[in-house]
Amino acid sequence: MDALIKKRIKQVIKGDQDAFADIVEIYSNSIYQLGYRMLGNRHEAEDIAQEAFIRAYVNIKSFNQDLKFSTWLFRIATNLCIDRIRKKKPDYYLDAEVSGTDGLTMYSQLSSDTPLPETELESLELQESVQKEILKLPEKYRSVIVLKYIEELSLNEISEILDLPLGTVKTRIHRGREALRQQLRYV
């Protein structure tokens, strides 16, 4: 598949727009999935995925063909998602509180003080509650968790996508895991 992608990229660079369709087809689900898990609704997921592909097309000449295309595409898409999350005013203030000092203090307090009520849990499907908890994560933990456990990418790839040192990626995954555990252990 990598060979096919490389061939299509060369064709696109030469000006063959139609060759881009295969690239979109191959990655559409994973990019859409990333958008959905990061942003929480289908409409925005589609929007962001479309924009990611258009940006990839427009900037295809700046893509270093020796590198992995999916890493580059994920980087574009993840950055778009993060930008959008930052622009949205959150209707809860966990993000704002958390980003300052130690990431998860607020979460720890929240989880110990107000665990999800049992009635709510019963009414929600497991899927929905997991999605909800992912969306509650501050953006910097959300992106690593989604890339690691939804997209199933390696720590090295995640570090390239987010342009962060491997150690930082690990720390964020550990904290994200801890936050999710505190929320989801009642499920």
């Binding site: 997991v130 939804i150 999710l180």
Partner: peptide, 14 residues
């Protein structure tokens, strides 16, 4: 268990 339920979320289709 947490990892299992996160990984277990259904795969979205574009």
């Amino acid at each position: 268990k947490t990892i299992a339920v996160v990984k277990g979320t259904s795969r979205m289709q574009a």
